[in-house]
């Protein structure tokens, strides 16, 4: 079971990491948080957070499987995570405000 928990955590970290990468782009930041100023969540900072989250995700994958398999799981999890982030931005952009620790943009969608 702990293996499944680790893999689930890796998937979650992929989603969060790519979510931060998305928020680092102005257009997506506006979708999620509206006109609120970025403050400390500068684009650079978000990219750094995103990078760390993705690296942690890879480390978790490596804990569970042989490196060759872990690499594939990680790369494929990024594909799934990117789809989740993209569709969240299309239909529920305010969900991503959670990642920016901001109140969501008013009258979202």
């Amino acid at each position: 079971m702990p293996e499944n928990v680790l893999l689930l955590a890796a998937l979650l970290l992929s989603v969060i990491g790519l979510g931060w990468f998305a928020l680092a782009l102005d257009v997506h930041w506006k979708q999620a948080c509206g006109k609120q100023a970025r403050g400390v969540a500068s684009a650079r900072g978000l990219r750094l957070f995103g990078g760390v989250a993705l690296a942690l995700s890879l480390i978790l994958c490596l804990q569970v499987d042989h490196p060759t398999m872990a690499a594939l799981v990680w790369i494929m999890s990024l594909a799934g995570a990117a789809l989740i982030v993209a569709f969240a931005l299309s239909w529920r952009p305010h969900w991503l405000a959670l990642l920016a620790a901001r109140p969501p943009r008013r009258q979202a969608g």
Partner: peptide
């Protein structure tokens, strides 16, 4: 041929994508 259900499903996701 590996035993890894998550990776199998991720492959299905990749294929359907």
């Amino acid at each position: 041929h590996f035993r890894h259900w998550l990776l199998r499903w991720l492959y299905v996701l990749g294929g359907l994508t």
